[in-house]
Nucleic acid binder design. Structure first.
Length: 421
RNA sequence: GCCCGGGUAGUGUAGCCUGGUAACAUAUGGGACUGUGGAUCCUCUGUGCCGGGUUCAAAUCCCGGUCCGGGCCCCA
């Protein structure tokens, strides 16, 4: 029994899994780069107040919060958006607009671990700041979709909503702000029962209520917007906005987006478009991405600025890739060198170094194993080719190169080895 | 915070119901076959999540904890 166990909800990643994770990370970074987003990094911990300012007092329960030796109230970050916007307010407000940034990092939440939910997890997100246009919203959603597409993750559902639609209904209830937030929460949870018996006497308007419930059940393509118009006495500017947004996403080449008026998101700094992406294969914790248009900089003491952003749950993407059978290459060794007599070892090291200097991943037998076991080892680490050096090869300054996939072998002069490979 | 199911060599499993010598496969280490080999053969090492209870005796039954998994709550 090991003396020390990993803390609950954390994970160790071995070489094989890390190779896959790095591969996926690289793909996602590359897509962001193609879209003109630049990477930023912020501290792993921040003042607790920052997260409270973004998400409310209730969040402290789920934070890894502590006091440091200077009695500062500190928390491990539970998400990255707050840090990135804090960074923006501190140092990036005067950059030319729009500011397009993305980030990747570990986050911490004190929650009950579950499938696809850990206490230390990884997020990759992007923010487009300072361009309050429908094109910015489209650009950000397009980046999220392109990222998934480049990873080969096809089995996803994209749902786009608009808070303007919901707010119009909520205004009609004529309730206080707290109640509005509560209602939005019910909508987010699709809690129809509570919606039928709204607090503050809002149930008085049964007709509005019925139409709201019908509305948030609407889900589908562009035709859904027309149905919504009927429920909203001819329409609303936010419906036109969604229609235009779908046109733009089509132009990007994404025609699989659904409109879903039930997407509400829990927070009240979202201002307009909101979207979520699910991977249905994942079960209860199937949401792999959430985002929308928001203003947050002013909450952190900066100038009010319109932004659009999202965050991917990186771990869930890894799970979804695995469940969907998407092939994620793990790094393999290109060359394994096997000196089979003592005299060959110096020659082996020389070749090893030359290969490495030429940028070819190479390894050699360090255990003086017999050929059978050495071949078995080379096979198990996925070596592409094995170079065998023994007395015969030494005598004629050559090596034997064996292709581990085809089984073909060739005797090659050491001086010609680079060209041969 | 709540409900359910689990935890047996590194890994995957059997045994648990009905208490009595912990088993199998595979992997790792070592060895043989002494340069055409990824095979085969031999061999060492290594195991009951933790704590308590019942019992002559607990992997097995009971209680508590812990971790993992499925779900609820929550999900910024």
């Amino acid at each position: 029994m090991p003396e020390f166990q990993r803390p609950r909800g954390t994970r160790d990643f071995g070489p094989a899994e890390m190779a896959k994770r790095r591969y996926v990370e690289a793909k996602m970074r590359e897509t962001a780069r193609l879209f003109g987003f630049g990477e930023v990094m912020t501290p792993t911990f921040e003042s607790t107040e920052l997260f409270v300012a973004r998400s409310g007092e209730g969040i402290i329960e789920e934070l890894y919060a502590f006091e440091d030796k200077g009695n500062r109230k500190i928390s491990l970050r539970p998400e990255l958006t707050a840090s990135v916007m804090r960074f923006y307010v501190n140092e990036m407000q005067n950059l030319p607009k729009p500011v397009k940034i993305f980030y990747f990092g570990n986050c911490f939440r004190y929650e009950r671990p579950q499938a696809g939910r850990y206490r230390e997890f990884f997020q990759l997100g992007a923010e487009l700041i300072g361009a309050p246009s429908i094109e910015s919203d489209a650009e950000v959603i397009a980046l999220a979709l392109a990222t998934l597409k480049n990873l080969g993750l096809e089995d996803v559902v994209v749902r786009i909503g608009h808070l303007g639609v919901l707010n119009k209904f909520i205004d009609e209830f004529g309730v206080k702000k707290d109640t509005q937030i509560e209602i939005r929460r019910m909508i987010d949870k699709q809690d129809f029962e509570s919606l039928n018996t709204l607090p503050d006497g809002a149930t008085a308007n049964k007709d509005v209520n019925d139409r709201l419930i019908k509305l948030i059940r609407l889900k589908g393509g562009a035709e859904t917007i027309q149905k919504a118009r009927e429920l909203m006495d001819g329409g609303d500017p936010s419906l036109d906005y969604l229609a235009d947004l779908l046109d733009r996403l089509n132009a990007y080449g994404f025609d699989n987006c659904q409109v879903d008026f039930g997407v509400a998101r829990g927070l009240d700094y979202y201002t307009g478009m909101v979207f979520e992406i699910d991977a249905p294969s994942l079960g209860a914790e199937k949401q792999i991405c959430g985002g929308g248009a928001y203003t947050l900089a002013d909450l952190f003491g900066g100038q009010e600025v319109n932004s659009t952003g999202y965050a991917f749950g990186f771990d869930r993407i890894m799970l979804a890739l695995e469940k969907s059978g998407v092939d994620v290459p793990s790094q393999n060794l290109e060359i394994y060198i096997l000196p089979i007599c003592d005299e060959a070892k110096i020659a082996a090291i020389k070749i090893l170094s030359e290969l490495r200097n030429a940028g070819i991943s190479a390894d050699m037998d360090l255990m003086s194993r017999n050929m059978s076991k050495a071949m078995k080892y080379a096979n198990s680490v996925g070596a592409g080719k094995v170079i065998i050096i023994g007395e015969k090869e030494l005598a004629e300054k050559s090596v034997t190169v064996r292709d581990m996939k085809t089984g073909e072998q060739a005797r090659v002069l050491i001086s010609e080895l680079n060209d041969y490979l």
